[in-house]
Nucleic acid binder design. Structure first.
Lengths: 227, 227
DNA sequence: GAGCATAGATACAAGCATGTATCCATGACG
DNA sequence: CGTCATGGATACATGCTTGTATCTATGCTC
């Protein structure tokens, strides 16, 4: 019975109705509230958020382009299940993108403010760890890694990395292990990573990153696990 | 006066009108027929391809999500210019993705049919080179590199790699140097790359790939050049 | 089990309301 | 008298609503 209304819709994303529907629906999918395989129709959502079918349709199209929804012509839209092996795919690409970003940063240098921002994120992680706020920590963790990619200045990489974050969040329902005693270790590792970056050791960074990622989110290499 | 009609619209992508408009418009942008900065409106395109504004709107939304169009509310849609430094960004990500794909292939092995397909593509390149068909060669070249990523089995990587190909194609108006005598060399290099893959030498592959890419499409590392 | 009627859902079209930029006339100022 | 700023009307473009045709799947009849 999926209580998806919440009807915060009207204030979620400001401005356009289509944007609102998009944000709301995406959140429902990523959070898992709309289970994979669920069949939804434009009219259904339209009625729920009190808009016509058109903005819903626009939102659905965007979600389809992100491969979160599969639109079956004249039949309806189904929430696509997380494909088997996606966890490994995401992890692999995160590794690849961050490594690549690191190489560019080592080559071009890191501006002081960008370095400062990364340090702030690590500090925020320590705070959250202290407070036992696993969810908040996860957000700061994600922001740190994304920050590295953004610091490289490769806009395409940043954009793509964000979608990886979305997809990972969708799986993280169970993937993120909330072991509070590990959080400080993670922050330490982040600090180490930053150190490698500043030292210009791109390959050392890569190795440390690989260890860091596989330790944090399982999936050392075996595809089995989900589904 | 951009002769964009061509009006082959009605037969381009079968099925939906929206798909048709999308394909046609995207092609116009990627081919450069619609110059960057051009302001177009839904109604304008709708009239030209003889459909209502609705499918045009859907196409525009997709193109916006690919950052090929920028939609200005109540004003119109403008073809976004290629951002400065994009050439380097694309190249860097191609390198990163292929390298990552290579590592997985080395780890998991390459099935016989996938290897066969890559060899076919190299053979096709030699044919085109023989015929002096630079355009055909470029297509086979692109297919070969994409084939490596696809052979790794990482679907997210494949999808993203395709968008890189699109964006590169948009720049390749001048970037691809049609020096026919180089084509055979390129095919040789592809063969070498495949050899490294089969030999399980992922890092050698990476180094060779880097040399191959930078030699083919300039931009050794300096950001200057465009704009 | 095959064929048909029906219900549901989209794909597209047309229309309405709203917001933005442009153009032209008018008036102030030098 | 010529030039420039100002204000309103107008053309244009979108955002959304609503309606129609078409297609798919389902359940019933035989």
């Amino acid at each position: 019975m999926t209580c998806y209304g919440l009807l915060m819709a009207s204030q979620t994303g400001r401005s356009s109705a289509a944007q609102t529907v998009y944000s709301v629906t995406k959140e429902l999918i990523l959070s898992g509230e709309l289970a994979a395989g669920t069949l939804i129709s434009e009219g259904e959502i339209a009625e729920r958020v009190r808009v016509s079918r058109t903005p819903v349709r626009e939102a659905f199209l965007r979600l389809e382009s992100e491969e979160l929804l599969a639109l079956h012509p004249k039949r309806g839209a189904v929430v696509v299940p997380v494909p088997p092996g996606e966890a490994a795919d995401v992890l692999e690409l995160r590794q690849a993108l961050e490594q690549s970003a690191a190489e560019r940063i080592v080559r071009d240098g890191l501006t002081a403010d960008r370095e400062g921002r990364l340090r702030e994120l690590i500090a925020a992680q320590r705070e959250r760890a202290e407070a036992g706020d696993v969810h908040g920590f996860a957000a700061a963790d994600e922001a740190f890694h994304r920050g590295i990619v953004e610091a490289s200045g490769n806009r395409l990489a940043s954009r793509f990395y964000s979608t990886l974050g979305d997809r990972q969040r969708r799986m993280s329902v169970s993937a993120l292990r909330p072991r509070p005693e590990r959080l400080h270790v993670l922050a330490d590792e982040h600090e180490t990573l930053l150190g490698h970056l500043l030292a210009g050791a791109a390959d050392t960074f890569g190795a440390a990153l690989r260890a860091h990622l596989t330790a944090t989110h399982g999936v050392p290499g075996r595809p089995g696990g989900d589904h």
